[in-house]
Simulated assay, not measured.
Amino acid sequence: MNLFDAALAARENAYAPYSKFKVGAAVRTADGNIYSGCNVENAAYPEGTCAEAGALAAMAVAGGRKVVEVLVIADTEDPIPPCGGCRQKLAEFAAGDVKVTLAGLQGPKAVTTVAALLPGAFSQSHMEGSDV
């Protein structure tokens, strides 16, 4: 399975009874494994979970730690980028030059990088030497 198909399949399982806005995401790790996620809403809106966070959680559960490619998919005319929180989550596991493809149901619409989505990302290096 490729990233597009994994994200598309995940999107179909999104739980979005409030917004009706289904999103899917998939990440590929350095060892070639693909993990996917979908958005999951709840009545305590907006306390749901984003698709990107779901994909990263699935990866972490399986022991993955290094993302080498990302794809996010939604049924929209314009490409949908990750939200701010998910940009930071992606930056935790992906280098700045990691490709992020933004897709619609028919295929990719735009390609960017983690660094372009989140310039100046906060990282572990910012905590070095602190008492944290």
Score class of each variant (00 low, 15 high):
Ala51Gly: 09
Asn42Arg: 09
Ala30Cys: 04
Gly84Met: 09
Asp75Ile: 01
Phe4Ala: 00
Val114Pro: 06
Asn39Gly: 13
Met59Phe: 11
Ala9Arg: 07
Ala26Thr: 04
Glu12Lys: 14
Pro79Lys: 07
Ile34Arg: 05
Arg65Ile: 09
Gln106Thr: 13
Leu117Asn: 10
Asn13Tyr: 05
Leu105Ala: 13
Ala115Thr: 00
Gly96Asp: 04
Ala26Glu: 00
Ala94Val: 01
Val27Pro: 10
Asn13Pro: 00
Ala57Met: 11
Pro82Ala: 14
Leu8Thr: 12
Asp75His: 15
Gly54Ala: 09
Gly24Trp: 00
Val98Tyr: 07
Pro46Met: 05
Glu12Trp: 08
Lys20Glu: 12
Glu92Asp: 07
Lys109Ser: 10
His126Asn: 15
Cys50Arg: 04
Leu102Pro: 05
Ala110Gln: 12
Glu69Pro: 10
Gly48Asn: 06
Ala43Gly: 13
Pro108Ser: 09
Phe122Gln: 12
Ala10Met: 03
Asn33Arg: 15
Ala60Ser: 14
Ala30Lys: 13
Asn39Ser: 07
Gly96His: 03
Met1Asp: 08
Val61Glu: 08
Gly24Leu: 02
Ser19Phe: 05
Phe21Met: 08
Val70Thr: 08
Gly63Phe: 10
Gln106Ile: 07
Glu92Ile: 10
Lys22Asp: 08
Pro79Met: 07
Gln88Trp: 04
Ala121Asn: 08
Thr29Asp: 13
Glu69Tyr: 09
Asn42Ile: 01
Met1His: 13
Ala110Ile: 05
Pro108Cys: 10
Tyr35Lys: 03
Ala30Val: 14
Cys50Pro: 06
Gly104Glu: 04
Phe93Ala: 14
Pro119Asn: 11
Thr101Gly: 08
Pro79Ser: 11
Leu56Thr: 03
Ile73Lys: 06
Val67Arg: 07
Val68Tyr: 12
Gln124Pro: 02
Asn13Trp: 02
Tyr35Ile: 04
Gly48Ile: 00
Ala91Lys: 02
Gln88Thr: 15
Val40Gly: 08
Val100Met: 07
Asn2Lys: 10
Gln124Lys: 14
Ala110Arg: 10
Val98Leu: 04
Thr29Gln: 08
Lys22Leu: 04
Ile73Val: 10
Ala62Arg: 09
Glu128Gln: 12
Ala53Trp: 06
Val132Gly: 10
Val61Gln: 14
Gln88Cys: 02
Lys66Trp: 02
Gly107Lys: 05
Asp97Ser: 14
Gln124Val: 15
Asn42Tyr: 08
Cys38Leu: 08
Pro81Met: 04
Gly84Asn: 13
